[in-house]
Design a protein around this nucleic acid. Sequence first.
DNA 1: TGCCCGATTAACT
DNA 2: GTTAATCGGGCAA
Length: 191
Amino acid sequence: MQKRLSRSFFRRSVHQVAPDLIGATLLFDGIGGRIVEVEAYHHTDPAAHSYRGPTERNVVMFGPPGYVYVYRSYGIHWCVNLVCEPAGSASAVLLRAIEPTAGLATMRRRRGLADERLLCAGPGRLCEALGITRKQNGFALDAPPFALFGRQGTVEVVAGPRIGITKAADKPWRYGLKGSPFLSKKFSSPA
DNA sequence: TGCCCGATTAACT
DNA sequence: GTTAATCGGGCAA
């Protein structure tokens, strides 16, 4: 059985936590799966929501590590982030893709989709499948309805540029499980 | 106050 | 490849 992770897992730099989350299992109300793709957003990063200081939307990022920051993307989708160390620094990891392992039927119903590979392949899709909305903004990750479990064994993590940003677009702060068919987008092969 | 842009996605041509 | 849907933040006026 996998070990349950406490919020102390997030008391490290976002650049350490992000790759370590690949292979971990996230459940919300018992629904979810294995994290296969994330992106790191450091508070000194112009692409981060927290870069220009706290607002009504991003205030959770300025709180303690181990909590979830949920925001509305393009006025349509929800995206979920996990706040990292140190408290008040406003760095977070964006969850971008999950390999569905629990609650497949519910996820298919919510997404109106049969293809398992597309249920959670993208930050907006992931939130729709798991049922995460603004209501969960500020929730703790290590308490119900959330549950996080550490990965078992070793995994091969690949890195590359983040998706959909224009600022600091060259930084290789997107991490994924090598070869996973559940990524939102393939990682380009090394040159 | 108004306008532009964005950590996206699905449905177009 | 292109575009609409739709809302919060940043910044100019």
